[in-house]
Amino acid sequence: MNTAPLPGSAPSTSHSTVPSAPATGAPSAPATGVPSAPATGVPSGPGAVSRHLTPVLSARHLAMTYGQQGTATHALDGVDLDIARADSLAVMGPSGCGKTTLLHVLAGILRPTAGTVLHDGTDLAALPDRTRTRLRRSDFGFVFQDGQLLPELTALENVILPRMLGGVTRRTATAEARGWLDRLGLQGMHERRPTQLSGGQAQRVAITRALAGSPSVVFADEPTGALDQTTGRAVLDILVETCRDSGAALVMVTHDAKVAAACRRTVTMRDGRIAEEFVRPDVQPTAEQAVAR
């Protein structure tokens, strides 16, 4: 799988394979096709944002080394990557290939050993921890494999919590969150606890929480890993669709090629480098299309 022709990811639509630029650290163009990404096929919807060419996240020559010399492990070894608003990117690869490390470095959770991650022109690696934490709160959203909802809080409170942490008043955050929860099909479940929700509903709450602050980028780590296939598919469609409609870029780590196929772009990592990239020019299926498929 790691050598990827990505058999399971081949959608019914034709796709172009963009071979990765060798990750040698040369100041070449990044391994991604964002600037050349066709602007076609962008569905319109409430709040849809057209893709623009300036990437919201731009990584250059990323390297991440764990351990000392001799026993050092190169989790990232010269990664170049761009992602634009409203675009979706799946990061695939075998265990230990560096995909989760890449997600954490892009999100400013980890500082890279070398290289830069520009978010709207600011280098995340140069920011102190507290500033990066605030940036994650205000500009990024996160969806984890098991939701990581606080079990004592209601669904609504789980959604407003990050907003309140960011200084938004409870009243404002609640008004926003109710709209988001309804939009994601959670009407009548606002006051339920996570234990009173199904796995799919809880994950939709987690997606709402990630999107309620109108982030510029949503990071998802195996977001459907704990769900059955049907529920996982539905949750995935909601995630991709709502990110696209709200103009947020989606960066999703997955080991499942079918899950990755929901994203417009897929990069496959191997040994800390981007080995291959797939771009699906006309993918960004609507929910109906995805279900039919």
Binding site: I109, R130, T133, F140, F142, Q148, L150, P162, L165, G166
Partner: peptide, 16 residues
């Protein structure tokens, strides 16, 4: 522990 980590990743400061 995992939830504290997740909250911090999502932007909760240690003081909070």
């Amino acid at each position: 522990a995992p939830r504290l980590r997740a909250q911090h990743i999502a932007g909760a400061e240690v003081g909070q």
